[in-house]
Write a protein that binds this DNA or RNA. Structure first.
Lengths: 145, 145
DNA sequence: AGCGAATCGTTCGGTCGACCAACGATCATG
DNA sequence: CATGATCGTTGGTCGACCGAACGATTCGCT
């Protein structure tokens, strides 16, 4: 029963990752937003949400928290007064490095019992699944703004 | 980044499974308790919790709900008056069958893009991971009661 | 130019899974 | 018998996810 396996494994993985993040005072949404910002550059909150898969309403709180910590900057978009342009600060980049380190550590712990070939195989299979389900869920290849 | 992949894939999987369950008016804990009951037989709530990985306090509500629906029976244990002995009813077994069907359907949808060999490979890798982390998290080996 | 539709940010609320603290009742062991 | 453990229960926290509603703004079409 792969669903059970996937679920249980994901629970372990999630616990590892969450613990790693919380040891730096962050949570999952923080990493996802910071990483998305670095990968795609500054963007509006709605666009950020689409790219990272975070609900618009949750994005508000997340950006509030990150801005409070000065990891992110919220500026009015002169070209569209509905929009806030969110951008990564120096401190935000440093935090992102910290979170990536934690993530790598969690990763090593999670995949400890697997050989390099097995790790590659697992990654490939998961990527196939993810690609398929992202595609059918309509992720529009985001390059907007 | 396997953690990201695992997490995202698990999210898709979780959505599929949860949607499947909720279409029969159930949630994850219901399936886990019913399945554990069938696999191990009647048991106290605490034992059920250990076997299914559900917190004792959450078990209360879950058993309440299942008993309300007559999927499960709560009887006082004559040998230990602290305990409730929970057992599966006929209707509970039928519900379990329904949930298993939904689960199988979710499974098919999840693994659609994978060949049979790939499915086996994925299952094996996940089982390895799960086994390892279960082991290191303390194996109860539950056969009590 | 103007009007209706769509988008953006925001607030509120709700579900679900996981977990913790406390408490009375009961049992087990010294 | 006293002390400590276990069981069921209540009530609360937290994070991730989702939906409804609303004012402000912009877009698209005629």
């Amino acid at each position: 029963m792969p669903s059970w396996l996937l679920g249980q494994t994901a629970q372990h993985a999630g616990r590892l990752v969450v613990d790693g993040f919380s040891s730096v005072g962050a949570r999952g949404y923080h990493y996802r937003v910071l990483a998305t910002l670095e990968d795609f550059g500054p963007a509006s909150q709605a666009t950020l949400g689409r790219r990272s898969g975070i609900h618009l309403s949750d994005m508000v709180a997340t950006v509030n928290e990150l801005a409070e910590l000065a990891f992110v900057e919220r500026a009015a978009d002169p070209a569209d007064r509905r929009r806030n342009v969110i951008s990564l600060t120096k401190a935000g980049k440093r935090q992102l490095r910290r979170l990536e380190n934690r993530l790598a550590a969690s990763q090593d712990e999670l995949l400890a019992p697997l050989s390099p070939e097995e790790r590659a195989s697992l990654t490939g299979l998961l990527a196939t699944l993810l690609d398929h389900h992202n595609r059918r869920a309509g992720i529009p290849e985001e390059r907007w703004r």
